[in-house]
Write a protein that binds this DNA or RNA. Structure first.
Length: 744
DNA sequence: GAGTTTGAAACT
DNA sequence: CAGTTTCAAACTC
């Protein structure tokens, strides 16, 4: 992240000042500097102190993706529409301007959110919930709607990720991609390339005119040579030291105060993002930028953060200049100005944990809640994203966390509770639960489509001390979202839990190993049989299905998104991910005969499942499963309720084994062992930044609310639309912005 | 939301 | 190891 690119970024800017675009901005921007002046973008480090993770559950990471889809749905909820429609109203002058601090936070949050939105548009939700600030743009990943005041800042240009950021930062900023965009705004080259397609869905235009303008922009071929910096929205860069220089001139106009990264803790935290953005804008090295972005996204996705859109307000009397201050608070804790911050309330349910798959098996690398096994990983990206900018304003404490949080929020499928922000999924869930009865929440989440965030167990007799319990099996403590009764799988009963675990392990050393083991490296077979899951990904023990034909989640193989293998004893295997290997095939055919009567049914099931997969798998094309790959955009099979068992899948990559064998090694990560620390599954744990390479958004899906971890799904992070599958096509419908040059 | 089905986990 | 029971998720209505 801290690459030379930063420097590069700055350099280009100055030159751009002379550029027509720059001039255009200066001349055109309706924004009045005076208005902005009050908003200094300094962040207090204190403000963003990262919240301690109380309960690190493996679930966290995975959640995002699964949620993503759900959230996407939620995004479509009336709220989004309402917000968009009412944006102008919402931004009424009624609310007092946020103080500089708030603004700062908001900007940062906004930035992070923006990023998230970009990456995980569908999944992420940003609830603008704050009553007062309804106008604050809400970013729903799912809805992909960032609502911004129409005319916030005409001049603002967006970088994909940054676009949102800028919005948040300065009230006047517009979110091009996800957010409503003003006609004038432009996206950086990359931004357009990667973001637009994906986020097009998100774009909401208040008026036809805007849409037209927007279209114009897109339609215009982006000139690679074009200096992105010049194009960058004024607001976008503000917090980033690097960006500051670039936008300095702009800032001067708007009178936005930009703080150096160094001076501004938040800026520092966001530095990566900023850098990325800047790089994207200015830099020729798009790849690096993309990577950075991807990295960022990855980080974000992992974390389940609730983001609240902070208060937004119009500053000016001018109709055009509605300034919106969107503040995302990763952590409620950190929020500086809570009052001002708008708390978007999610459905209590959604908040719940949101991360269905969060619970990661200790053993399993990453499982997305909904997605089982490998697929989960892949899929996770798509699903997990639902973010909710929940009620409580999130505050980002540390830069990293902030960054992560933002990332997670965006990426994470989970519904994020505002309160829980910054906390790992489990924690988040707990927090949420605390507020509400866990059961209710859980059910709500389930009803919601499993907000995926925090699905949990529902054990009644096992006391959550047996493998029946998904939480226990995943190596995570039960949390409020769980509807379990007489639960002993709690930190309070740590000794009991450990003891029981030992007992079970003594019986079956692999009991807590991920059920689906994927060897990322060995993928020789992938191409061979499209129907087969690469041998690299298999259920550790194989299924024993008799009636489900391995077409339903009853089948662990299917649930894990892997094909059946020789080790399976299933009957009539029709596993869409791959029937039994040779032997399986043999069996399958005979079965078909026997099933002939059933065959039609089975086929139907298959079709359904496939359809589901397509639907569910939105982003996460399974790498291992060729068939799924084509479905990158398609939802994973496990979309709705399917929560892949938390520990369901383990990815064994050459060096890193998370498989059962590694179980012991990983155990330390387990909640139990690490209960007091972050529960981090290796995958999950990997710092967002660090993991970047490894885990793209999808890649590291650590935890699904369900506790199902998903090993890294698609790592393609490229801005390429493919990641966010669901959104990709939207762009076509989206009108392009009028290019600045045109305006000029 | 309640009831049924299913198959893994646990038990014998 | 096989058979049975228990369990909770997945599924259906």
């Amino acid at each position: 992240m801290d690459t030379p690119e930063r420097n590069q970024i700055n350099a280009p800017l100055n030159p751009n000042q002379d550029s027509p675009v720059f001039n255009f901005i200066n001349n055109l921007s309706p924004i009045k500097p005076a208005k902005h002046a009050p908003f200094t973008h300094t962040f207090n480090s204190l403000t963003f102190s990262s919240p301690p993770s109380l309960f690190t559950s493996p679930h966290v990471t995975s959640l995002n993706e699964s949620r993503f889809l759900k959230r996407h749905i939620s995004l479509h909820t009336p709220k989004a529409n309402d917000s968009s429609q009412n944006v102008n109203k919402k931004y009424s002058n009624e609310e007092p301007l946020p103080n500089s601090t708030e603004l700062r936070e908001s900007t940062k949050q906004g930035i992070s959110i923006a990023d998230d939105a970009i990456e995980l548009p569908q999944a992420l939700k940003y609830n603008c919930g704050s009553p007062g600030y309804a106008s604050t743009f809400c970013v729903d990943a799912a809805n992909n709607l960032l609502e911004l005041p129409r005319e916030a800042a005409p001049d603002v240009t967006y970088v994909q990720e940054e676009g949102c950021k800028t919005d948040s930062v300065q009230s006047e900023i517009l979110l091009p991609g996800t957010c409503q965009i003003e006609p004038k705004s432009e996206f950086p080259d990359r931004g357009w390339d990667g973001l637009i397609p994906e986020h097009t869905d998100l774009l909401i235009f208040n008026s036809p005119d805007e849409a037209r303008a927007f279209n114009g922009l897109f339609q215009k071929p982006l000139d690679s040579s074009t200096d992105l910096m010049s194009l960058l929205p004024q607001s976008t860069i503000i917090n980033n030291g690097h960006n500051v220089q670039l936008f300095h001139s702009i800032a001067s106009r708007s009178e936005l105060q930009i703080e150096d990264q160094h001076s501004d803790p938040l800026a520092a935290t966001e530095t990566d993002h900023v850098v990325d953005n800047a790089a994207m804008n200015s830099n020729p090295n798009e790849k690096t930028d993309d990577e950075l972005v991807s990295v960022m996204h990855r980080g974000l996705r992992r974390r389940c953060l609730d983001f609240e859109m902070a208060s937004v307000r119009q500053k000016n009397s001018d109709d055009n200049s509605n300034t919106v201050f969107s503040t995302l608070h990763s952590d409620g804790r950190n929020v500086t100005n809570e009052n001002q911050l708008v708390h978007t309330k999610h459905n209590s349910d959604s908040r719940k944990c949101n991360l269905p798959g969060i619970g990661l098996h200790l053993n399993a690398l990453a499982i997305l809640k909904d997605h089982n096994g490998i697929k989960h990983e892949r899929l996770s990206s798509g699903r997990q994203l639902s973010l909710i900018c929940s009620t409580s304003s999130l505050k980002i404490s540390t830069s990293q966390e902030h960054h992560h949080l933002a990332m997670s929020a965006v990426s994470s499928e989970r519904e994020i509770d505002s309160s829980s922000n910054g906390v790992q999924p489990a924690e988040e869930c707990r927090e949420d639960l605390n507020q509400n009865s866990p059961k209710k929440k859980k059910r709500k989440s389930d009803l919601a489509g499993e907000t995926e965030g925090c699905k949990r167990c529902n054990c009644k007799k096992s006391k959550c001390l047996k493998l029946y319990c998904e939480c226990f099996a995943a190596g995570v403590y039960c949390i409020e979202p769980c509807s379990c009764q007489d639960c002993f799988n709690q930190a309070i009963h740590e000794d009991t839990v450990l003891q029981t675990r030992k007992q079970i392990e003594s019986r079956n050393p692999l009991a807590f190993a991920p059920k689906v083991i994927r060897s990322s490296e060995s993928v020789p077979e992938v191409g061979d049989d499209p129907n087969k899951t690469p041998a690299s990904a298999r259920h550790k023990r194989g299924c024993n299905c008799k009636k489900s034909s391995c077409l339903k989640k009853y089948c662990e193989c299917f649930q894990g998104g892997v094909g059946c293998s020789i080790s399976c004893r299933c009957e009539g295997c029709k596993n869409a991910f791959g029937r039994k290997d040779g032997s399986a095939l043999i069996e399958a055919e005979p079965e078909e005969e026997t099933e002939s009567g059933e065959k039609s049914v089975a086929e139907k099931d298959l079709q359904k499942t496939e359809i589901q997969n397509i639907e569910d798998h939105s982003d996460s094309a399974l790498i291992t499963t060729p068939s799924l790959l084509s479905r990158s955009l398609l939802p994973l099979p496990f979309s709705s309720k399917g929560k892949p068992p938390r520990s369901f899948v383990a990815t064994i990559s050459g060096s890193a084994l998370f498989a059962s064998s590694s179980e012991k090694l990983e155990k330390p990560n387990s909640l139990w062992s690490q209960s007091k620390h972050f529960q981090t599954v290796p995958d999950d744990e990997i710092p967002d930044v660090l993991s970047i390479d490894i885990s793209p958004v999808a890649c590291i899906k650590t935890s699904s609310p369900n506790g199902k971890r998903i090993s890294s799904p698609n790592c393609d992070l490229g801005p390429s639309s493919s990641r966010r599958g669901g959104r990709k096509l939207i762009l076509q419908s989206i009108p392009s912005f009028p290019s600045l040059t045109n305006q000029q």
